[in-house]
Design a protein around this nucleic acid. Structure first.
Length: 409
DNA sequence: TCTGGGGTCCTAGGACCC
DNA sequence: TCTGGGGTCCTAGGACCC
């Protein structure tokens, strides 16, 4: 029998912003951008939620619901920094910590009773230490499975603790909406509703074979989840081992759709640089390069190509991407979004030994130098996109990233 | 409701091979 | 020469999470 904590920070982005600007406290706050921008709400304060504002909602909609809300830009660097602090606090309780995202973590607390006492006492201590170290509140779910711990922390919000005593899982889950089960989204919820399945208890009563027949492999996992078991997908892996990423991608939505080839290609070049940089940071080579293209009507295509020689080099990524783009863009059709996605990774070191090409090696050294420059002087210091000069706006203080914006008049 | 960006996992069809 | 079956890789798309 194991004991898992699921620790979920309360209104994480908003709370971090409040630390930098205490005047935000107690007010309706929306993190994500200006109310007239393209984009969605990253996080909303509890006061803003009272007006119906929630994350993933378009900013313009949030503004209609709550015009007096304070709209602030997100600060990913701050959130990462606080996330590390959260990790440190959790790690002081148990060596087995896995950050499931920037603001939530699973902690394996099995066998810590001698140190911290029973689970509720440990949770109380964790609340205290978290507050002292980060000034932030969190909610804690405790259970014998990660799944139930996660659902528990959700029910405990805000700033609460919920312990589901072993053996009580079914009773705890039965009255909850199926939507509370991680992995059940809008579509699955609707599907389940058509079968009259609304509560987790309805799900648990069903025959496993029925669910497997209707929903395949996922249905089988769902049957397990309805009984509180860690089954399927990301619940199968062990806590604590942090693997390399399986994919690295960057994408950009234009403030206004554009059909300007120069701007489009300059954007792709910049996205390739961002992806290349992350590949080098992780020491990975990508075999599959994927373009994402979204038109004004939101229709979206992806086009991928696997190369014979995996790469982490900006120009090689860009060559592939430009090829994909030229072969698949319906020229003249305004584009809303472009994305560059790299996957099928191989270990860069091993790859280099096999190939041992000097040209490749020189490129790597040049890029490493460029990465160091970027570290010192910022992202705009060195750029492949700059070779496409004249096709996009010069980088300025208003546009430090050099992302293509409006062309100069 | 005019819809971000970064991920993970799953499905399904076709190519290709034995 | 009317048409198998299993395995694997590649590609495209979609559900879902924060």
């Amino acid at each position: 029998m194991r004991t898992y904590f699921h620790v979920d920070m309360d209104a994480f982005f908003v709370s971090v912003e409040e630390l930098f600007d205490p005047s935000l406290k107690g007010k309706p706050v929306v993190v994500g951008g200006r109310p007239n921008e393209r984009g969605v709400v990253s996080a909303a304060s509890y006061e803003a939620r009272k007006f119906g504002v929630h994350s993933a909602m378009p900013l313009r909609t949030a503004y209609k619901l709550c015009p007096r809300a304070i709209f602030v830009d997100g600060h990913p660097d701050r959130y990462r920094e606080w996330s590390h602090q959260v990790y440190d606090v959790l790690h002081s309780f148990s060596p087995l910590v896995e950050m499931a995202s920037i603001d939530e973590a699973y902690v394996d607390m099995t066998g810590t009773e001698r140190l911290y006492g029973p689970p509720l006492k440990a949770a109380h201590l964790l609340h205290e230490r978290m507050k002292i170290a980060t000034q932030l509140n969190c909610s804690i779910g405790i259970a014998a499975s990660r799944l139930v711990a996660k659902i528990g922390s959700d029910q405990a919000k805000p700033n609460g603790v919920l312990w589901v005593i072993p053996g009580q899982e079914a009773a705890f889950l039965a009255p909850l909406d199926v939507r509370r089960v991680p992995g059940v989204g809008k579509v699955t919820e609707k599907n389940l509703h058509t079968f009259g399945i609304r509560k987790v208890g309805d799900l648990a009563r069903l025959d496993k074979a029925f669910l497997e027949e209707r929903f395949g492999k996922w249905g089988l996992a769902l049957a397990g989840k309805s009984r509180g078991e860690d089954a399927g997908g990301w619940f199968d892996t062990e806590i604590g081992e942090d693997a390399n990423p399986k994919s690295i991608s960057h994408e950009h939505t234009f403030a206004e759709d554009t059909a300007d080839l120069g701007r489009l290609e300059a954007t792709l070049a910049r996205l390739c640089e961002m992806v290349g940089r992350r590949l080098r940071e992780h020491g990975l080579d990508a075999r599959t390069i994927q373009l994402k293209l979204r038109y004004s009507d939101f229709s979206t295509i992806t086009r991928a190509h696997s190369v014979s020689r995996p790469t982490q080099i900006d120009t090689e990524l860009y060559e592939e991407i430009r090829e994909l783009f030229r072969n698949n863009w319906r020229a003249g059709n305004p584009v809303r979004l472009l994305g560059v996605h790299a996957s099928s990774f191989t270990d860069a070191g091993k790859q280099m030994e096999l190939i041992g090409e000097q040209r490749h090696e020189r490129w790597k050294q040049a890029l490493a130098a460029a990465d160091r420059l970027r570290d010192r002087f910022g992202e705009s210091a060195v750029s492949l996109a700059a070779s496409l000069r004249g096709k996009f706006r010069e980088r300025t203080h208003e546009n430090p990233a050099g992302l293509p914006g409006k062309k100069p008049r």
